[in-house]
Amino acid sequence: MDTITRLVRRRNLVLALAGSAFFIWQTSELTQDLTVDGTALMSAANIGETIGAITWVVASLTFLAFTFQVRRERAGAIINDEAARHDRARAMAVGYKVMVVTIGVLFLSQEFIDMDAAVALRALLIVAVTAPVSLFLWFSRDSGDVEP
């Protein structure tokens, strides 16, 4: 495997790790906001919050190390080539639509349930961060069909 392919795979791996960790961390905090103390769900949320937050910090530091590696290899322009930029723009555009739908769902929900603004904002934050990351990983997935 050549250096560029290895770097692209590493980028996707770090993004997947950071996105998943952020999702676990913030979803656990959201669960804590919606659950009463002393329940099994609250215990699970506490564990999820700790694991998610630590993993997110580790993923962020790994991403920082990755950016230094890309700079050292002078591969920034190649791994952010026009196809990658296209995938990123598409992920942001679709992610925006997902966010608008989420706002609509939250807006309708507050008609039926008493919702704290902090809960709604946290839900939006989760979608705003994880949707574009997940969509980018999906759009930029490699079929792996290397043709000689």
């Binding site: 050549d2 560029i4 392919t5 692209v8 322009a77 190649i78 791994i79 080539d81 026009e82 196809a83 990658a84 930029s140 490699d142 079929s143 069909d145 290397v146 043709e147 000689p148």
Partner: peptide, 16 residues
């Protein structure tokens, strides 16, 4: 694909 990608400065996936 990898050699062509390197020659034009993109990833193999882009060529693919």
């Amino acid at each position: 694909q990898a050699e062509l990608a390197a020659a034009v400065g993109v990833t193999r996936k882009t060529v693919n």
